[in-house]
């Protein structure tokens, strides 16, 4: 399951999509809006995410297909928030369901790294006195 949404992310609902009788492990990664800036010293007071939505969804689906092909039996959910966020809110949730824990850690890491590298989403940090677009690869 993959999705983009402007609504707050509900982690248990996303986790529920990867549960399966044969899966002994469910692992969830939550990326959270934080106050420390990517660069510089100005405290972040909010974030604004923008996506090229049709391509972002297409790219999420490609990643989903690639990882589920690489690891048959993997159940994977990736959901990214867009729009304005306050600090402490979930930005991205990656849930994996797997038969055993080792695969869960590998698949979770692969999913978030591929998402960050490939899915066309941009982040603007909001400060008390301005704002700036920041990136994953400075």
């Amino acid at each position: 399951m993959v999705a983009l949404t402007a609504l707050p992310l509900h982690v248990p609902a996303i986790e529920a999509t990867v549960a399966a009788p044969q899966n002994g492990a469910v692992l969830t990664f939550v990326g959270v809006a934080r106050c420390t800036p990517a660069f510089g010293e100005r405290p972040v007071v909010g974030l604004d995410y923008e996506a090229y939505a049709p391509m972002a969804l297409a790219e999420l689906l490609r990643i989903h297909t690639e990882l589920c092909t690489r690891w048959p039996g993997l159940r994977l959910a990736m959901v990214h928030r867009i729009g304005a966020l306050t600090l402490g809110e979930p930005v991205v949730v990656v849930c994996v369901g797997t038969p055993h824990r080792a695969l869960a850690y590998d698949a979770s890491r692969a999913a978030i790294e591929e998402l960050k590298a490939r899915v066309p989403i941009w982040k603007k940090e909001i400060y008390a006195d301005g704002s700036a677009w920041t990136s994953n690869r400075p």
């Binding site: 990326g31 995410y49 996506a51 090229y52 391509m55 972002a56 990214h80 930005v91 991205v92 978030i112 998402l115 960050k116 590298a117 490939r118 899915v119 066309p120 989403i121 941009w122 982040k123 603007k124 677009w133 920041t134 990136s135 994953n136 690869r137």
Partner: peptide
């Protein structure tokens, strides 16, 4: 056509 500035998702 879309130009993709450095990504910031996740």
């Amino acid at each position: 056509l879309v130009f993709l500035p450095p990504l910031g998702g996740g």
